[in-house]
Design a protein around this nucleic acid. Structure first.
Lengths: 257, 257
DNA sequence: AGACCACTTGTGGTCTGACCACACCATTTT
DNA sequence: AAAATGGTGTGGTCAGACCACAAGTGGTCT
């Protein structure tokens, strides 16, 4: 009787299945409300606690946002912001040693190299000289990246503040690329090794020298993009990232708790 | 950064924090058991249901495996297998339109292109002719990929079976690359658009022709890797993936529920 | 001595019911 | 008209109970 293998999904999985099905069928979309927990429980024939377990998963995955109270902004609303979920996943996997730090850094190299190379490609003057090229998108706006660069020039910044701006700068490049998957993944990778990056600060010979070099490298990256030099941008960003982690011997340090 | 929120963390977040801290400090590692739910609840001063919400998140993220019963294999055990969590995240984000399908495909192109290029690089005869080169790792074993190729040659395969083998083939390449992050990410990307790939089958002009072409392209990819031709391998794999999705007009179809 | 079997124990899985804090909304009061 | 009031529905949390399950435990029988 109980050996009917296959359909023994657990109660909370039923809720997850239901939500996924509603999303795929279009019954649910961004901005919509999930049914109230109690209603979902009776509809699916499960307890409210099981519904809540599924809701919690959806929340951590960045699919929904929950708010207490009443009214249109309360309840569980579909937001589909993958950044937080990706960060949580990668941070925990690195902590549990499912993701070696070296692999995280390597993946960053690949993705960010691709991003800046693509950006430079799109910012290069087309073979026909005009902007209305056959390329999908034109040169995106890099204003935010430039603003962050100047913000990083302020001499009174602490090391942690500088690192935070540095993270934002790299993320702004990914956002300029326009690929949601890449942006979220890069955000996750970055947050996964954030603790290690902070810990690496202690091992630096000279922070002023390092930060000055980082500033120069940031400008070189943007310059290569603006100049339409894909390969130069790729090499610049890869040298930038790999250089910092080599300098701080990141893989051999323990993160700051 | 965190807006000085302080003690407003919700009960289930306390549990998550505790587990993450134990992981980072080394008190918990792969293979270890989490404390029993009831004990964890008492230790942290929260209800068992809150503990369970956190446990559920960890399970979906692929960090732990839970089993009922007694004995050494029961309870919540840290496994750190990121594949499932990545798949769930990306599948749901695509379903909720947080990840455009086009971006998923583009990211696949970047990552898999990098993987096969790297494989080819490592399989190329070094400038000194020997295998003991300064390169980190030698040419990895591609036996599994070849086995899958021959498996795909069987003429009695259904379309779905062929697609499943195709997915395994691509995954085997990622695994050969040895980067855990890339492997898990590619597995997630693949599963996110699996439904769309299946749906695209219906729009094909001729499945026998398409499958024959896919078989040839697979062999070309492996050949380029074995020949130590990074750029050729990259182009082969990118053409392979982009070609299939262009042919099936994937982005304009609805997935099979 | 060895094999077998019922019982105990500890685990996750689930449900129920209750209470709280909160935010909106309709009503009443000023 | 404006302000105070209470109602209502939401998620957040807890406590307790029961179940299914898998190992251990100890006894009994051969």
């Amino acid at each position: 009787m109980t050996t009917t293998a296959g359909t023994e999904r657990r109660a909370w999985q039923l809720v997850l299945d239901r939500v996924e099905l509603d999303l795929l069928s279009g019954r649910l979309g961004p901005g919509d409300h999930l049914p109230p927990e109690r209603q979902l429980a009776v509809e699916l024939g499960v307890g409210r606690s099981s519904v809540r377990e599924a809701i919690r998963v959806l929340e951590v995955l960045g699919l929904i946002r929950t708010s207490v109270g009443s009214g249109p902004s309360a309840g569980a609303i579909i937001v589909a912001l993958p950044g937080g979920g990706m960060s949580a996943l990668m941070r925990l996997q690195v902590a549990a040693q499912g993701f070696p730090v070296a692999d995280v850094v390597k993946t960053r190299l690949v993705l960010e190299g691709s991003v800046v190379s693509d950006l430079a490609e799109r910012c290069a003057p087309g073979p026909f000289g005009g902007a209305g090229d056959a390329v999908a998108d034109g040169c995106p706006d890099l204003t935010e990246s430039r603003v962050l660069l100047t913000a990083m020039d302020r001499p009174e910044l602490t090391e942690a503040e500088f690192l935070a701006l540095d993270a934002q700068f790299h993320l702004s490049l990914a956002e300029a690329g326009g690929n949601q998957v890449v942006t979220a993944t890069m955000a996750g990778l970055r947050s996964a090794i954030e603790g290690y990056a902070r810990a690496g600060l202690a091992g630096l010979v000279s922070w002023p020298a390092t930060s000055a070099r980082l500033r120069l490298e940031h400008r070189a990256i943007l310059a290569a993009i603006a100049a339409g030099d894909p390969e130069g941008a790729r090499l610049a960003v890869q040298g930038h990232i790999a250089g910092y982690y080599a300098e701080t011997q990141l893989t051999s340090t323990t993160p700051t708790l």
